[in-house]
Simulated assay, not measured.
Amino acid sequence: MSKRKPQAPLLPKLAGSVASLRQPGDIKVGDYVFLDAAFRRIADMRSNGACTRVLHFDDYHPKTVREAIITYRAPDRP
């Protein structure tokens, strides 16, 4: 019997974007976050301390981010 390597969990895909693990300070307005089975575009953002961001979405309640999360960004956006 051959042993299978454990696979990393599959990330959801958003066409035309690249998934990346980002710290709160590296997240930008216009990035996407996958929440409750849907991609949510960050419409606005507030700082709530040195390493905390509150992300605001048009169609979802605000989310406080205190640690690195996966965000999706177009590859041509710096």
Score class of each variant (00 low, 15 high):
59 D>F: 09
59 D>C: 10
52 T>M: 08
77 R>V: 09
36 D>T: 13
54 V>F: 06
1 M>V: 07
4 R>N: 13
54 V>A: 04
50 A>D: 14
9 P>I: 10
70 I>N: 12
58 D>F: 14
21 L>D: 13
16 G>V: 00
69 I>P: 07
12 P>F: 00
46 R>L: 15
56 H>E: 08
38 A>R: 03
9 P>W: 05
51 C>Q: 14
72 Y>W: 06
58 D>P: 10
49 G>P: 06
76 D>W: 08
51 C>H: 14
18 V>L: 01
41 R>I: 05
41 R>G: 03
61 H>S: 13
5 K>T: 10
3 K>P: 05
56 H>A: 07
11 L>R: 12
23 Q>G: 11
16 G>L: 01
51 C>D: 13
61 H>M: 14
39 F>N: 03
28 K>N: 02
78 P>I: 09
62 P>L: 09
33 V>Y: 05
68 A>Q: 13
57 F>C: 06
75 P>M: 02
10 L>K: 06
68 A>R: 14
72 Y>A: 02
72 Y>I: 01
52 T>H: 02
6 P>W: 11
1 M>T: 03
50 A>M: 14
52 T>P: 03
69 I>V: 13
25 G>W: 11
47 S>K: 09
15 A>Q: 02
25 G>F: 11
45 M>Y: 00
32 Y>Q: 09
14 L>M: 05
59 D>W: 05
21 L>S: 14
77 R>W: 03
42 I>G: 01
46 R>Y: 10
50 A>E: 15
7 Q>R: 11
4 R>H: 11
32 Y>D: 09
54 V>H: 04
24 P>V: 11
28 K>T: 00
51 C>A: 13
63 K>L: 05
77 R>Y: 04
61 H>E: 15
30 G>Q: 00
34 F>M: 14
58 D>Q: 15
51 C>N: 14
66 R>I: 08
2 S>K: 02
51 C>S: 13
41 R>P: 02
6 P>Y: 15
40 R>C: 11
20 S>W: 05
66 R>Y: 04
2 S>N: 02
48 N>S: 12
59 D>L: 10
37 A>V: 09
15 A>E: 00
58 D>W: 11
54 V>N: 08
38 A>G: 00
48 N>Y: 07
49 G>E: 05
